[in-house]
Amino acid sequence: MEGETVTRLLKRMRYVFPLVVVKIDGTVIPRDRFKETRIPDNVEVEVMHLTSGG
């Protein structure tokens, strides 16, 4: 079975923040590839959310 996509994972984990930086095993995944990027088994996924203000 193929891994779930980044978009599906974020939805399943209930990440409600509109803007996140996602890394899979240390490699950044651009936001416009979340829908097509499938997450393989046994990898580390990091999600960092960003909030406006500066």
Binding site: L19, V21, H49, S52, G54
Partner: peptide, 28 residues
């Protein structure tokens, strides 16, 4: 300022300038 721009810059620095540290801030 915007979260959109923050995420964009972080992504591009990590992808285009490998090995270059980026120091970001969120939630100010």
């Amino acid at each position: 300022d915007s979260a959109e721009a923050k995420a964009g810059l972080i992504e591009e620095v990590l992808m285009n300038l490998p090995g270059k540290p980026i120091v970001a801030a969120s939630g100010v």
